[in-house]
């Protein structure tokens, strides 16, 4: 206990702790949108697809400054998202296959570039830590970045809450109601890519998807209100961030990212069984609510 308290006094711990809470919240809230649109794995595809952008940004500028790398990651993430939608819309290939293609081909390209960067001489070290993430080395400036990100996400969600609600649940009617569904679709993709490229440095490419998918999925078991869904998912994400950081600080050599994910999964299992709205132990209510629920899950499906 005393050790735990002394932990809180340490500034490194505080930075990591606060940053993971904030990034968990931001990812959790954006995750609600991608889950409602049934695009959970988009995050996985985009995070893998960010790699060539990172390396290319380094190769072109010779800089390892974080903003440069993030811009590179963002551009290649957006291109990837664009390609996935493009393949889905212009061919008979389904979205999940399109994601698989883009994910693996972009990542393969990234590995090629990384190998070239490795040969290009000094200075490239640490580029691959972008792939695996290093939560423990976050510092004060990271806290500010994560804080800014979380604020931006919240702002965009709550200011346009009414519009999101229509766009997410009932995109067909959005235009009728004078909402530019296309604009919000793009805004959503932008938010998704933004969250991914910023959070990726903390948890790495592979676990990124968990931060977006799991809290939002867990929240679904407790409520049907979109507002509460956002809040709860943000809370779950933040909680998982906090708990994961605490657990991984309790002993030496524990990685932070995986513990955040495992905590998050714990919340999910609890929600799955005991969730007040749809949990397995509330089967009756579940059946009664199927009608309600179905407009939640399939409403976001654009065809």
């Amino acid at each position: 206990m005393i050790r735990l308290l002394s932990l809180f006094e340490s500034s490194n711990f505080q930075w990591v702790f606060i940053s993971t809470i904030l990034l968990g919240m931001a990812a959790g809230m954006v995750g609600v949108m991608s889950n409602l649109r049934q695009q959970g794995l988009m995050s996985d595809a985009i995070s893998h697809a960010a790699l060539p952008g990172v390396i290319l940004a380094f190769l072109l500028t010779g800089e390892k400054q974080l903003p440069v790398l993030i811009i590179g990651a963002g551009i290649s993430g957006l291109i990837a998202a664009f390609f996935i939608y493009g393949i889905e819309q212009s061919t008979r290939i389904k979205r999940d296959a399109a994601m698989g293609i883009i994910l693996s081909v972009f990542f393969g390209g990234g590995i090629m570039l990384l190998s070239i960067a490795n040969r290009s001489g000094g200075g490239q070290s640490g580029l691959d830590s972008f792939i695996f993430g290093q939560a423990a080395s976050m510092v004060r400036s990271d806290t500010y970045v994560m804080g800014g990100l979380a604020l931006l996400v919240m702002l965009l969600i709550f200011v346009f809450f009414k519009q999101w609600k229509v766009v997410l649940f009932d995109p067909q009617h959005a235009n009728m109601m004078g909402i530019n569904a296309h604009l919000f679709s793009s805004l959503y993709t932008f938010l998704l890519v933004l969250v991914i490229v910023i959070v990726i440095q903390a948890v790495g490419v592979i676990l990124m998807a968990a931060l977006l998918i799991i809290p939002a999925l867990s929240a679904r078991y407790w409520t049907h209100s979109l507002l509460i869904l956002f809040l709860l998912s943000g809370f779950f994400g933040g909680f998982a961030g906090a708990a994961g950081t605490l657990i991984s600080s309790s002993e030496s050599n524990l990685p932070t990212g995986p513990f955040i994910v495992v905590t998050s999964s714990g919340i999910f299992i609890l929600s799955l069984f005991f969730g007040a709205e749809k949990g397995l132990f509330h089967l009756k209510r579940y059946i009664n609510k199927t009608a309600l629920q179905s407009d939640g899950t399939s409403g976001g499906d654009e065809k």
């Binding site: 049934q38 794995l41 676990l207 968990a210 999925l217 995986p258 495992v262 999964s265 899950t297």
Partner: peptide
Amino acid sequence: STGIHSDAAIGVVFTTLFAIGVILIST
């Protein structure tokens, strides 16, 4: 089968199992 969309189900399962794998490696 409990009504989770396959996308989300895959996302939950593989990230969790992968995270457990990484934790096992490091511990």
